[in-house]
Design a protein around this nucleic acid. Structure first.
Lengths: 205, 205, 205, 205
DNA sequence: TATGAATGAGCGTTCATTCAT
DNA sequence: AATGAATGAACGCTCATTCAT
């Protein structure tokens, strides 16, 4: 837990390099960003960069790791699919998850921009990783849906995997809309529309 | 309509270069693909490439243009939102559009891979273009929904823009799933789940 | 003397290619001129060029040869240094030569531009050739001066070689001035000043 | 005035690159010289070149700038046209200028070679610059002549501009002769012939 | 430890030249 | 004979990475 002053400094600079890289990648794209750009943003020599990270590929890996961890943390907090056992609590949990996602994805549109728009084009390995992250997210959502079905809150004949992907797709669409237009009011409206589609569908009764 | 032999040859090679570039970009990514790779795939000299396209940026523009045109053509065929005036026809139209999208997006997973995963990372201009394509797609879907509301087929209180983005998001999610797993059976299942969510929602009754 | 129609056509096109190349080289420089530019100016295919000239180096050689021949012809006409034997005739000859040089060098400023400004930068061989042309010109002028001394028209203690170079330098300066400012009136004035310096010097008496 | 060691090193290498480029351009021509040739001559990596100069055009600009500055410095030293007010001093000044020009132009024949033979063929912009340098030189010489006329040392009816160009032409001719044959004895003889023509003309009395 | 000067692999692009039609 | 499509050598330039200070 305790670190020497030097260690704390080092950790802090490491953090700042990741943040600066994140910003550069989002603003100019991974390939258009040079190591020198990242260093310049922090006012450090670009040789210093290599004392903290192996190479350019390494830093973007850390940027992505941090973002993914942030998202997973948010979702995992007290939101494990089995953490609730009443319809009431399930609804609340859904609401909480939606709000949490909104906070990270929509409040800082650089995050979806990085993950959705920038990351896949970095190289094939990262593209694959993003696809796998999507699969994992589908799995998480499927777990929630499965629990919902068990609780009797969701339709018993639900295609859990397919529906999970549909729901995640809607979230993806929201995130993309937020990237293009970060107006909070529009995001709230969009979020409501999404829940409405999810729960009630679009058909007239 | 009629072209000389030389003109046909030229047009044909042009086509082949676009296809080869498309394949290279999808397989290795835009930035990892050199002009020499595209030329080598066709067995032509890399100088020849420049007789057909201005530069590397030019070819990817054509690749994207062709894909976008292909998608819009499919959607536009006989599927203008005002082209139907009965519930029956509206439902059929929705089905047709869904199937058409399936054909192009899911039958050739290189297409969503290129547009969703590769294109945004090419440069900021292309990233912007993809976002705008997404906006345009939202507009198209909104037109369909608006027509559906007018016909009384869809809920009168539908948030048209938000719902359009939700639906497009679901399609995006399907496309992403198809990129990761191109099994046609899974795609059909997913497509059905998506329609079910759309029409009926997920809530138990 | 007689040529078939085809032969005349060929010779004519050859001539036109040389002229077009001359114009291109003067307007844009040798290195900035492509074979395609020369062909385009004539409306012929650039492959045709190679039926008339070996390569790019070959054409510029011909352009220079033609210009040099033109200049030498002018000077040589009836102006051989031994062609006159009275002071009167010598003066007339000098005048004739000056006027003839004026006609070719100053009436078409592209000629000095090509020989003085463009040619030396083509490659080391051409640079050498231009230097040797300058030497040859110095020799010609020296011959005239020598004859002038023999006739008693020029100072007996004249440094013939040095003076020849000085005179040629003045002509070179005139040509350069004409390249920069092709106004005929200025050129006449300059030509007069040059003769005055030559005959009388600049010192007050 | 004081620079750190690193700054001195940097300035020194910069100087060496300019010199190496100068030598390469003179020996092989601007267009036949690659950046790699310049770097190889110094035993540095060719990437290093770009740490000191923007591009190939930039270096040649610096080479020319340095040469022009060197020439102007030499002429300007204590040789302003108004700096003398007696015939004696005027003659001395002329002599000084001639000797100074001789020192730079004739002692290092690479300088006239670069400015007269190489520079104009670099591109149209540089060609123009050389022409303008010639104009400026004509202006400088004209200033000297004008002063000479005012002092009564030169003919009152002198065509100042024309005579200035004639004199500069003679200098140009000397420089060209020096490029072809750098023998100092010949250069001195030539220089004397030039002054003789200038002051006395060539005509027998 | 921080720096930035040095490096060279790598790539986009041009264009003189060839040759099948 | 004329054409222009095809070619690839050649070169300018970038930038991630190394390492001496």
């Amino acid at each position: 837990m305790t670190m020497s002053l030097a260690e704390r400094r080092k950790a802090e600079l490491r953090r700042e390099i990741i943040d600066a890289a994140f910003t550069c990648f989002v603003e100019n794209g991974y390939h258009a960003t040079g190591i020198a750009d990242i260093a310049a943003r922090l006012g450090i020599g670009h040789g210093t960069f290599y004392r903290y990270f192996e190479n350019k590929r390494d830093i973007v890996e850390h940027v992505i790791n941090d973002l993914v961890a942030k998202i997973l943390e948010t979702l995992a907090a007290d939101n494990a699919p089995e953490a609730v056992s009443t319809l009431e609590a399930y609804r609340d949990q859904s609401q909480r998850i939606g709000e949490a996602l909104g906070r990270i994805l929509l409040e800082d549109p650089r995050i979806p921009r990085m993950i959705i728009l920038e990351a896949p084009g970095i190289d094939t390995a990262m593209g694959q990783r993003i696809l796998e992250f999507n699969e994992m997210a589908a799995g998480l959502t499927a777990d929630y849906l499965r629990h919902g079905v068990e609780l009797g809150y969701l339709r018993a004949d639900l295609d859990i995997d397919g529906t999970a992907r549909a729901i995640n797709g809607m979230i993806l669409g929201s995130a993309l809309a937020a990237v293009h237009n970060p107006d909070p009011a529009d995001q709230r409206r969009l979020s409501a529309a999404l829940r409405r589609v999810m729960y009630d569908g679009i058909a007239a009764r």
